[in-house]
């Protein structure tokens, strides 16, 4: 029961990944791509937690911790650069 629900959750996460990647490829302006980059990092945190659940190692959660702490740095610097025009 719970395994089937987890597989369904993985499929939905993959759907979100594909949609955000499509926005990254298509995005008409550079800031749209920055938004897609942000969403992709958040989806990656979810994917890492799912991988930690599948393999049963709690050490993988530290990687998600570093992601959650540092992924916004690149987004903020890119946004501050793109403020002054494209």
């Amino acid at each position: 029961m719970a395994d089937v629900l987890l597989i369904l959750a993985g499929c939905l996460v993959f759907a979100a990944f594909a949609l955000a990647a499509w926005r990254f490829v298509k995005g008409p302006r550079a800031l749209d791509r920055v938004v897609a980059f942000d969403v992709l990092t958040i989806i990656s945190v979810t994917g890492i937690v799912l991988a930690a659940l599948i393999t049963g190692r709690s050490i993988y959660l530290d990687v998600a911790l570093v992601y959650a702490l540092l992924s916004f740095l690149g987004v903020i610097v890119a946004a501050r650069y793109l403020e002054g025009g494209e």
């Binding site: 959750a9 990944f17 955000a20 749209d32 938004v35």
Partner: peptide
């Protein structure tokens, strides 16, 4: 089972967020 249901709901929100990212018309809505 409760935890798996919770994760399924969260994944549904993620997929809806990705759908909104593709479907919304301008950058503020995205």
């Amino acid at each position: 089972t409760i935890g798996a249901l919770m994760m399924l709901g969260g994944a549904l929100f993620l997929a809806l967020g990705g759908l909104g990212l593709v479907r919304m018309p301008d950058i503020y809505n995205r």
